[in-house]
């Protein structure tokens, strides 16, 4: 396997760079959740946070040559797909009733 074009990046990139990249992606996702009012954008930012965690799991799995981490990522993808399907159905229902998906208008549950 030495004649492959590229080395595995885990051999030349320290694991700390992957942790930093994942932390930055996670922070961007968290920033988006706090920054925006559009519920769909907030959903997308949650996807971004899930992907940051997935990237870190794959990096550690490759680092330790352990396949279990990649299987976890597989399950996280399945759960994310289910979550998006149900969440978008809820959003369309909310839009049908409130005619908006601005989260500041959705405080009805509070009072």
């Amino acid at each position: 396997m030495n004649n492959i074009l590229l080395q595995s990046s885990i051999q030349v990139i320290p694991i700390n760079w992957y942790i930093l990249l994942s932390a930055a992606l996670f922070t961007i996702g968290a920033l988006g959740v706090m920054f925006r009012r559009n519920a769909i954008i907030i959903f997308m930012c949650i996807e971004l946070m899930l992907n940051a965690v997935n990237l870190l799991l794959v990096a550690f799995s490759s680092f330790h040559s352990d396949a279990a981490g990649q299987v976890f990522v597989f399950f996280i993808m399945a759960v994310a797909a289910a979550e998006v399907a149900v969440g978008l159905a809820i959003l369309t229902m909310i839009y049908r009733n409130v005619k908006s998906i601005d989260i500041d208008l959705l405080g009805n549950l509070k009072n």
């Binding site: 595995s8 996807e47 992907n51 990237l55 794959v58 490759s62 990649q70 597989f74 993808m77 994310a80």
Partner: peptide, 21 residues
Amino acid sequence: IAGHYILLNAQFLAIVHIVVY
């Protein structure tokens, strides 16, 4: 991110990631 997966030798996950996400 899928490119990162390929660099990390997680080829199957890269394909699944592109297809699913």
